[in-house]
Design a protein around this nucleic acid. Sequence first.
RNA 1: GGCAUCGUGGCCGAGUGGCUAGGCAGAGCUCUGCAAAAGCUCGUACAGCGGUUCGAAUCCGCUCGAUGCCUCCA
Length: 495
Amino acid sequence: MALYKEQSLKLYNSMTGEKEIFKPINEGHIGMYVCGPTVYSNVHLGNCRTFISFDLIFRYFKHLGYKIRYVRNITDAGHLENDADSGEDRIAKKARLEQIEPMEVVQRYTVDFHNTLQKFNNLPPSIEPTATGHIVEQIETIKIILDKGFAYEVNGSVYFDVLKFNKNHDYGKLSGRSLEDMIANTRELAAQSDKRNPQDFALWKKAEPQHIMRWPSPWSDGFPGWHLECTVMSTKYLGEQFDIHGGGMDLKFPHHECEIAQGEASTGRNPVNYWLHANMLTLNGQKMAKSTGNNILPNEIFSGENDNLSKGFEPSVARFFMLQANYRSILDFSNTALLASEKGFNRLMDAYRYSSQLPVSATSSFSVSEWKQRCYDAMNDDFNSPILIATLFEAVKFIVGVKEGNEQITTEDKELLHNTMHDFIFDVLGLLDTTITNQDNSEKLSGTVELLIKLRAKARNNKDFATSDQIRDQLLALGIQLKDGKEGTVFTLEN
RNA sequence: GGCAUCGUGGCCGAGUGGCUAGGCAGAGCUCUGCAAAAGCUCGUACAGCGGUUCGAAUCCGCUCGAUGCCUCCA
């Protein structure tokens, strides 16, 4: 029996502002769409957090036995930098600055995006469609919206008529805004365009002569509006109505609001059942953003080459750090927080590794099955990874207790404990065991260090502490730390 | 200015009407030739002011503060 039949999952629906019991349209199947990146520069850590959040969600659904189709787009058609007609396309601008083709920009940063997410151990989505690969479908959708009377053409551009749409629909229901308030608070901008009113948004834009990325359409040589691709591609691959739509918090308005409008205008149906929004990663209390330069690149985390960092960190440590906060909370990035996570991460991994070799007893002093369900309870409560991690640390404490002889575990429970930890640490949280220990190192290195450990033990037996301390201190200077325990000495390597 | 979210112990960060979050740091102890490591024990916090309640960090109101969105943004 599939696990999802035994577990009741609740998720926080941004549309209603409440945690709701999750019920997919088709039992056992899930369609999930997540807004992907605009590939005109390297992904920064804030972008990664969103995709790690949805990777956690994707992984948990898979773990529960759902058959899930996860669609995440690549925005490779440039969005305009501002709303005025003279605005420049971001990708075209980057191409101009780097003196290359726009699609070279797209290719370069798409590859970077994939490489980076792979380092964080994100699973690839089921389908990763591109905006430029769906120009035809976007034109078709514009035609439908025009036919239904929710859009108008002006000078080769097509705009969505928000005022008209709002007469029979609720524009603003996702972000909690009312159109009246928006109109009341509109600051009149000098360079207003062909729009009938400022809340309208482009479905198709006529390209200025210098605009490189352009396609023919019934209205003009131009390019699709920024919100349309997600509507079109989610509909194409998941249907007119699907289960989950996710994305960064900053996309809630206007992007997702516009998607709802486009979907309802073209199909008459509310496209999405559950809206999930991942919150921002901040740096120095401010949102990380490409445009402001307030950001950290993943490679800087790995190498430590950034003024905010004292050292480099493994991708899994950064991932663990992010998963210690709920995906809906703002998380502030800092070196000290990352250092704390690294220690906790290592302790968790040490305990996991040891869990397979625990000494067994006739009884258990800890209810492993009850603990296992609490792991599920945590994830069932809107993917509460911090609670899951806290629960895993209960097991860590217990494992240490068994090791020290203060707790007991049966053979059966030991297997259940080890397997459950494996499932949650690796399959659900998506962490990688990158901790460097003597088990992972080359035989030559570990053989050498073992030899030094023996020599040191011999020196200590002879009370030759000068020699023993020399071995210990010089190894430490090389980044090899000796740890004396009851059962002898082990070592760890600094990474 | 409008809309929204949030304000938790030294730091990060859960929870949410009565019951220990967790991690890191710190303190004491054990172990140790010394140290490190490891283990054990320890914190009574919820912005401020009112209100509801037998009882509120948790609900309501106000004040203050922070952040996000309102223009592209994960």
